[in-house]
Design a protein around this nucleic acid. Structure first.
Lengths: 149, 149
DNA sequence: TTCCATGGTTAAGGTCCTGAAGCTTTCCCG
DNA sequence: CGGGAAAGCTTCAGGACCTTAACCATGGAA
């Protein structure tokens, strides 16, 4: 149990939080302009293929009962629909409506613009930064599969 | 309005979110073991000098009315106290109790351990990673002052 | 068939957050 | 000096998020 000081790691945590906070702030602002609360916007932005509720819960790292409410909100706004799985009538797949596709495109466009603006600062070192972050994550296993594509 | 693709920036956003999520997950777990909800733990971990409510609100990027509730929680648990400012009787300074000092030490120790574990992966490049992240943040103005020390 | 596991929902309870309204205290300008 | 505007904090109403426990319907297997 190494109790070394490692002040650089402390700094790194703080920096990561700041950068993530900046990104999340921008994302939430974009979501608010579409009249969407953060969690609903997060799902909308990352949903592509029809996805069972349970899978969404895993991806969000929360309880399935919570996902019910979030998807309820998206459904109420007409951005998403529940489609029963013909093979297993217990599961319901969440799918984008056409309105949902538009909202997703809007959110993703804003996210891309924001990322481009933020990381333009390190234009010449983007690949390096990416590799460093990736190797940080490679340390411990992360069971989160991507929801996109 | 450059609408370039910039797929690296997209990747970077996702990576930042993942790393931050890992950190936040660990922090929240540590907080939960102390019986503290996330926001209260966040304040406890970062509070050092006596701090007016308004300043806390700025640091948390939220409305002052919200801070009231969070500090109420910490006060209810005996970790924090409200001390009136003798110079301006409108303001109340939030200060740590002895119990609060202990909780803060515990939270910070866990945070340090976690950061060390995570960023040990890039041992030889920590400084470089720090500089890259710092220059990302240098891009736009961030009015958030540190609460520590 | 019977039993149990699984996917999803409901209900109750707590935390976080906002906006509007209110209180006290301070500040400033006439 | 006096009176209004402004600042700091709280309260209230309302919404969103999240967890646990209980429940229903379906599926699978002994």
């Amino acid at each position: 149990m190494s109790a070394e000081a490692d002040p650089i790691a402390d700094e790194l945590s703080e920096l990561i939080f700041h950068v993530a906070g900046r990104l999340r702030g921008g994302f939430n602002a974009a979501a608010a302009e579409l009249g969407l609360p953060p969690a609903q916007a997060l799902v909308l932005a990352n949903l592509s293929a029809p996805t069972p509720m349970r899978e969404l819960a895993e991806w969000l790292s929360c309880e399935p009962s919570n996902v019910t409410g979030i998807v309820d909100g998206l459904e109420r706004r007409g951005l998403v629909a529940r489609r029963p799985d013909p093979a297993d009538r217990r599961v319901k797949h969440v799918v984008l409506t056409e309105e949902g596709e538009r909202g997703q495109a809007e959110l993703r466009a804003r996210g891309r613009a924001q990322a481009h603006a933020l990381f333009g600062q390190v234009e010449t070192e983007k690949e390096h930064l990416r590799d460093l972050l990736a190797s940080v994550l490679a340390g411990s296993p992360d069971p989160c599969k991507s929801l996109r594509r």
